[in-house]
Amino acid sequence: MRNALTGVERALFWTLAFAAFAAAAAGLSARAVDRVAADYEAARSSYAIVRVVAPEGPAGLAAAEMALAQTPLVRSAAPMTAGRAAALLSEWGGADVSAENMPPLRLVEVELAPSAAQRDVSGDIVAALAQGGVTAELIQAPDDAGGGGLATRVRMAAFWGALVFSLMMAVIVSLAARSLAARRREMVTVMCDLGATRGQTAGRVADEAAVLGLYAGLAGGALAAVAGVIVLWLAIPGLNLNALPQMILPVDLVPIVAAPLGAAIAAGAGARAAAGYFHAQAARLG
């Protein structure tokens, strides 16, 4: 017998590999969006700024820092320096702000504990400061009503978008695999004439398509993985090979693992349906 991967089969292999690559890349993109959104959400919900009203001056800031340090809601608290304030203003306003031009600040940056997001953080912090003899207000605090659900919606959109796209790729793989059954039509006819049942004939063609799909999926998944690493390399300055494995979570590998399995299943199913149809045509004339 000749090499199995010639002509139509080779073209089919690369079609399936491309579809698997596209599906895996969509999955990896969805994972990236998910992680960025999750990080944004975590950062947004764990950060607050306290403005100390009284007592004034460094004493007020020290008292506020001490009171906040004793609050279970707070992971860390530190007075905002002029340099840090200038950097933030530059980031928000777009224009350079000099630290020397900054007025005396009465701000304390607070990093909240993860569990704090579910509580009335603003009220609890103000109460904790009041117990420490500090009058203060929160000028930035977690607020689920003000766009707080956006990250979740983005994550869901990425997930469902990738899923729908992957299903579309599976349909393309399934349709493309029918060409293999058409290519094996002679064999289907011969098997039918020799007494093979529809299941046997379709199963044989489906097995061949599934193996082809598996290898094409492995190729597509591997290419998507390489592309993903390149994108990470370009997107994250200072990334090195030692840090890379620690960055990648097991769940990030799901699209790469799913690509060959999905391609094998879709190709097998498509080829099985087509071969079964051809068998039925050969089995019954008239």
Partner: peptide, 19 residues
Amino acid sequence: ANVKKRIGYVAENPVFVEQ
């Protein structure tokens, strides 16, 4: 299908797996 396995058929234009 089971009976077909016990029949040898020589077609007018026999079909083979050409490769």
